[in-house]
Nucleic acid binder design. Structure first.
Length: 214
DNA sequence: GTCCAGGGCCTAC
DNA sequence: GTAGGCCATGGA
């Protein structure tokens, strides 16, 4: 079973996901950081809290007190870390690029990735997510769901590294931004509905091609 | 009450 | 380089 076929099945089943229709690049970055290890529903509460207070700007976040930011992010879980992460991200963007994310992201994917990974709170997945959804770089995002799904489908072995998976996707899928954004979103959707830690295969669109339940 | 969600950091081996 | 503990709210 090829990735291309799986993509078609998922797109047909779930429809287009259209993730990250946000008001700004910065909002996308904030969303990506806030959704770490939680649901979008909870992350969105944090975004809403910031919007209500008109704080969804690089400079604003960089300058408000940590305590205030923590309180606004409480519904997102792990709010102390996330507040610190947003502080670090915004202060870096402000000092080095005057808060202009367009300017910051206008460099090669490799350079930007290295730069993002140096910031506390931005690991591999968050960096790749920012690269794809905010900086519009052609990078596939490998998350826990992607690994679990591909493992259960028998496409990768358990323990395959993120970079190996990315190379595999790169080989098998026609490379365009929209497809990468959609596929990642579709994997998450499939994961939430059917491919949880304990499989819930009843009605899964990939049930007929899934080989094992590891 | 229990389990887990669109990770990452830190520490110990 | 990787396995395990930790972070914390909210929904099922």
């Amino acid at each position: 079973m090829h990735i291309k076929k799986i993509y078609k099945i998922l797109l047909n089943y779930f429809g287009e996901q259209g993730w990250w229709h946000a008001d700004s690049i910065f909002e996308i970055c904030v969303g990506i950081i806030l959704v770490q290890r939680t649901t979008w529903r909870n992350a969105a509460k944090g975004i809403e809290n910031l919007k209500k207070r008109r704080l969804l700007k690089v400079k604003k976040i960089a300058e408000i007190s940590l305590k205030e930011l923590e309180d606004l992010l409480r519904p997102t879980g792990f709010y102390r870390q996330k507040a610190e992460y947003l502080k670090i991200f915004t202060q870096y963007a402000l000092e080095k690029y005057g808060g202009d994310l367009e300017k910051w992201f206008n460099k090669s994917a490799e350079e930007l990735r290295k730069e993002l990974l140096r910031l506390k709170g931005i690991g591999e997945e968050t960096a790749d997510s920012i690269l794809l959804y905010a900086a519009k770089k052609l990078v596939f995002v490998v998350d826990a769901y992607t690994k679990r799904i591909l493992t259960r489908l028998g496409i990768i072995k358990k323990g395959t590294s993120c970079s190996e998976i990315k190379k595999m996707i790169w080989r098998e899928l026609p490379v365009d931004l929209k497809t990468y954004k959609e596929l990642r979103a579709l994997f998450v959707e499939l994961g939430k509905r059917f491919c949880k830690a304990t499989p819930q295969c009843d009605g899964c669109p990939l049930e007929s091609v899934c080989q094992k339940h590891i």
